[in-house]
């Protein structure tokens, strides 16, 4: 096709090419700048954040040692809490949400349409808008069941599960609709009951989409701050998000190095998970987009 084009346009394209590359590079540098700063600060031996030159002045493991040995910064404990909460939320969400999405996608029942419309409304509503109500409610639950109210990870997990259930069912239903029906119909003709179709045919088939939904739920929980900070007041109960926030909030200059090391450690597993599953996640994103 390029042979058809007059030379004048070609020159303009070349000029445009340089500009394009420049534009892309500006954003490459913009993207990398904070990432570079975090890596550099993690291994820098001075505690302070000041980097008058971008060249590191010397490197050490001291920041990581602080994270692992300083009892006032129970970083491993925070990571553990975050991972437990996020995994529990991801797994339970997928099981409960998957079942409901299966019913909406594959079964015919009275009130299905109304149910879907209600679901649509619910998944639009950001549950933290009701945060004052959730707080007052869980405060009264605390007075009856201390292990499920304010200050407990169990109560927080329940709120996460309930709060994201609408979105999860909606998301899963969209995915499940794309799985061909032939297989479960065939099993049904062979005499399988509905629950057998669900557990033995459908569940393995839907595994990839369930995994993506689980990952999104995992990331969502990992990133959640507002409820976790309101609920988990005890230092040892904090999630890594709340823990690092309070750590850097206390004394930024002094704690910057260990904080950078901590956020690096907390981010790496998620970045790896994300990049290895990016094909599915981005597929879902653009599918949602092109469906319009």
């Amino acid at each position: 096709m390029s042979t058809l084009k007059p030379t004048v346009t070609k020159k303009r394209i070349n000029k445009g090419n340089i500009l394009s590359h420049a534009f892309v590079w500006v954003f490459i540098l913009f993207t990398l700048f904070p990432i570079y700063i975090v890596i550099e600060s993690s291994f820098n031996n001075g505690g302070a954040l000041s980097t008058n030159s971008l060249i590191p002045s010397g490197w050490s493991w001291i920041n990581f040692k602080t994270l692992f040995h300083d009892p006032s910064v129970p970083f491993m404990r925070w990571m553990f809490n975050s991972i437990v909460l996020a995994s529990a939320n991801a797994i339970i969400s997928v099981f409960i949400g998957g079942a409901a999405a299966f019913a909406f996608s594959r079964m015919k029942f009275r009130g299905r349409k109304t149910g879907l419309q209600a679901l649509l409304l619910v998944q639009v509503f950001p549950s933290f808008l009701a945060i004052a109500a959730i707080y007052v409610m869980m405060d009264s639950v605390y007075s009856v069941f201390p292990k499920l109210g304010i200050g407990s990870m169990g109560g927080l997990l329940l709120i996460y599960l309930g709060g994201s259930m609408g979105v999860n069912i909606w998301l899963l239903r969209g995915y499940i609709n794309t799985i061909p029906m032939e297989l479960d119909e065939a099993a049904r003709i062979d005499g399988a009951s509905t629950s057998q179709v669900y557990w033995l045919i459908f569940f393995p088939l839907a595994a990839p989409v369930l995994a993506v939904t689980a990952l999104l739920a995992f990331i969502g929980t990992f990133n959640e701050f507002i409820l976790a900070s309101l609920f988990l007041t005890n230092v040892d109960q904090r999630t890594v998000a709340v823990g690092l926030e309070s750590f850097i909030g206390a004394a930024l200059g002094q704690n910057w190095g260990p904080f950078a090391a901590g956020s690096l450690l907390a981010s790496i597993p998620l970045v790896i998970l994300f990049l290895s599953l990016q094909r599915f996640i981005i597929g879902g994103l653009t599918q949602g987009a092109t469906k319009g």
Partner: peptide
Amino acid sequence: FILVPVVY
């Protein structure tokens, strides 16, 4: 965890 808090 959605409906009750919203109503509340």
